[in-house]
Amino acid sequence: MILGRFGDEDELVFEIDLIAGDELELPVNAILDTGFSDWLAMDEQDLEGFDWEYLGERDMLLAKGESKFDVYAGKVKIAGVVFEIPVYVGQGIPEVLLGRQWLKTRRLVVDIPSQVLTLGD
Rank of each mutant, 00 (worst) to 15 (best):
I19S: 14
G74Q: 04
W39M: 01
S37W: 01
V110N: 06
D22Y: 07
D43L: 04
I112R: 15
S114W: 04
Y88C: 00
D33N: 04
K75R: 13
F14V: 01
D46K: 15
F69P: 08
I78V: 15
W39S: 01
G120I: 00
L117N: 08
D10H: 05
Y88H: 01
D70Q: 15
D33Y: 01
V81T: 14
V109A: 02
A30E: 07
M60V: 02
D59I: 04
P113M: 04
T118E: 09
Q101K: 07
L62Y: 09
W102S: 01
I112W: 10
G99S: 02
R107A: 08
S67T: 00
D17M: 09
F69T: 13
D17G: 11
F36W: 00
L55A: 06
G92H: 04
I112H: 10
F50N: 00
E9Q: 14
F83A: 13
L117G: 07
L103F: 11
D121Q: 13
L18A: 06
K104M: 10
V87T: 08
R100K: 08
L98F: 02
K64F: 02
G74E: 04
V87R: 05
R100I: 11
Q45T: 14
L61Y: 12
L103I: 15
L62R: 10
R58A: 09
D51K: 13
D46N: 06
R58W: 06
R107M: 08
N29V: 00
P94V: 15
L47W: 04
Q91E: 07
G80V: 03
F36R: 02
K104R: 15
F69V: 13
I19H: 10
I2K: 14
A63M: 13
E9K: 15
L47D: 04
G21N: 05
G56Y: 06
L62V: 13
V82H: 14
W52V: 14
A63E: 11
I31M: 14
A20N: 10
